[in-house]
């Protein structure tokens, strides 16, 4: 089980790195899906099978499909001039070295502490459901209202406003344009 965790963690980190550095948005999204699958394996190992399933169904299924849909709809080319200018080593090497020292500090501090193994107890979906709809009932209702607000907001923002111009005004607009030209 431990080796499975480490393999999945390595796959998740590598594919996330490839996702955030990819040039093509679709390829980056595919790497992100691989990363989500690896994270789902980790959730399964941690004893959260329900969360592992939700990770695949909602993240890799719904959210990523939304992303792919928008990218295909926009059909955009990549603009990378600014990014290429920013990615010159001279600009980021000093802060990266300093933050890396801090990261080493952090890891050493954690290594000094006594190790705590996880309980490894599998929490079945039934318990999660009971807790969600009894202890956290108010939270579930608020989450529902948030989703409603999300739907209304997405509809309002994503609507293409139709331009309605009266015949007379349209001619006037053309005349104005002609005089300007």
């Amino acid at each position: 089980m431990n080796t499975i965790f480490y393999i999945a963690a390595a796959v998740a980190l590598i594919s996330t790195g490839l996702a955030i550095t990819g040039r093509n948005a679709i390829h980056a999204l595919l790497f992100l899906i691989v990363s989500l699958l690896a994270i789902s394996i980790i959730f399964y190992i941690l004893g959260a099978p329900f969360i592992a399933a939700l990770e695949i169904i909602i993240y890799a299924g719904a959210v990523m499909v939304l992303f792919i849909f928008v990218i295909m709809m926009l059909n955009v080319g990549m603009e990378r001039e600014t990014e290429n200018r920013w990615l010159r080593p001279r600009m980021w090497i000093v802060p990266v070295i300093l933050s890396f020292i801090l990261l080493i500090d952090f890891i050493m501090m954690m290594k000094g502490m006594p190790h705590h193994a996880i309980s490894g107890r599998i929490i079945p979906p039934k318990q999660v459901g009971i807790s969600l709809f009894s202890t956290y009932l108010l939270g579930a209702e608020i989450a529902g209202m948030l989703l409603l607000a999300g739907i209304v907001g997405a509809y309002h923002l994503g609507r293409q406003k139709k331009k309605v111009i009266h015949r007379f005004l349209q001619n006037e607009d053309d005349e104005i344009n002609n005089t300007i030209q």
């Binding site: 719904a62 959210v63 939304l66 928008v70 989450a143 999300g150």
Partner: peptide
Amino acid sequence: VTAAEVSVGLA
């Protein structure tokens, strides 16, 4: 929260 954020963000 993520689902709501993504839908509004993509719009």
